[in-house]
Simulated scan of single mutants.
Amino acid sequence: MSTATQHQQAQGNTLGGLQVSQNGYTLNPLTASTPTGRPTDFKFTVTGPGGKPVVDYKVEHEKKLHFIVVSRDLTSFQHVHPEMTRDGTWSAKLTLPKAGPYRAFADFTPKGGENLTLGADLQAAGGDYQPEPLPHVSRTSTIGEYTVNLAGNLVPGHTSKLTLTVNKSGKPLSDLQPYLGDFGHLVALRADDLTYLHVHPEASEKAGPEITFHAEVPSGGDYRLFFDFRHDDTVRTADFTATAVLSPSATHDHGH
């Protein structure tokens, strides 16, 4: 998503992922129920202003459509890559780890149109839903042998520079593999309503250890950041909780 689109989403009345329909486009889940803990062939369509499924999309970051599924408590995150049939029906292998409510996001650009992120609610059946508390604010995420450190702060209404540094067994990595056309992929979600912000890194030829992103958040409060990176042919996800606070310098700048 471009910086201009992020700015438009942050400043406009319509924030990403909060609506199932926007500008005549609608996200339509076709799979009625999703079991817990086992793969499901989840199907959906995106219908256009004429009411028919969209079949022509602009390829962005190597995909026609990006499909993100998170649990409502923001402790579970999946970025899956659905396949589309000729009639515009999308299908994704989806495994929801625990019972309860989820939010699905379709991030796409219809051919000849503007980038959109539509959101729809999903429910994983089976068992009692016990929401987990939002993970504590942290600048370090550990995934097995990998550690990812976060530098930078989210500032409402301003473009924030975020730098993620990837280490394995304590050593900085310089051989990250491209994932979706970049050396990293970052999704930010506002904790209170799951507003969706999709950001990508600065252009760089260096395959790590540092990857820099620019994000613009629409308000103060807590956000969840999910960072996908690829190494040794495996995609891993680091997650962080960050709080956006208007800094004194930003307040001063805004005043001028």
Rank of each mutant, 00 (worst) to 15 (best):
G48M: 00
G48Q: 09
G48K: 11
P49T: 15
P49M: 07
P49F: 07
G50T: 15
G50I: 01
G50D: 15
G51I: 07
G51K: 04
G51E: 08
G51L: 05
K52N: 14
K52P: 10
K52A: 15
K52T: 15
P53Y: 12
P53W: 11
P53K: 14
V54N: 11
V54F: 02
V54A: 09
V54S: 10
V54I: 07
V55L: 04
V55C: 05
V55T: 15
V55Q: 14
V55D: 09
V55I: 15
D56H: 12
D56G: 01
D56K: 15
D56I: 08
D56C: 09
D56E: 15
Y57C: 06
Y57H: 07
Y57Q: 03
K58S: 13
K58A: 14
K58I: 13
V59G: 04
V59I: 10
V59R: 12
V59F: 07
V59A: 05
V59W: 09
E60C: 02
E60Y: 04
E60R: 12
E60I: 02
H61E: 10
H61M: 02
H61R: 10
E62H: 10
E62R: 11
E62S: 12
K63F: 09
K63Q: 14
K63E: 15
K63N: 12
K63H: 13
K63A: 14
K64L: 12
K64A: 14
K64Y: 13
K64W: 11
L65P: 03
L65E: 06
L65R: 01
L65S: 04
L65N: 05
L65Y: 02
H66N: 03
H66G: 00
H66R: 06
H66P: 08
H66L: 07
F67V: 13
F67A: 01
F67W: 12
F67E: 01
I68E: 02
I68P: 03
V69T: 09
V69F: 04
V70G: 10
V70T: 14
V70L: 13
V70A: 10
S71F: 06
S71D: 06
S71L: 02
S71M: 03
S71V: 05
S71I: 04
S71C: 08
S71H: 00
S71W: 05
S71Q: 08
R72C: 14
D73G: 11
D73P: 00
D73Y: 01
D73N: 04
D73R: 04
D73Q: 00
D73S: 06
D73I: 02
L74R: 00
L74N: 01
L74C: 10
L74D: 07
L74P: 05
T75I: 10
T75M: 05
T75S: 14
T75V: 14
S76C: 03
F77A: 06
F77W: 12
F77D: 06
Q78W: 01
Q78F: 04
Q78H: 11
Q78P: 06
Q78Y: 06
Q78R: 09
H79P: 05
H79L: 07
H79K: 01
H79I: 09
V80F: 08
V80Y: 07
V80R: 05
H81R: 05
H81K: 08
H81T: 07
H81M: 06
H81C: 00
P82L: 08
P82H: 10
P82D: 07
P82G: 10
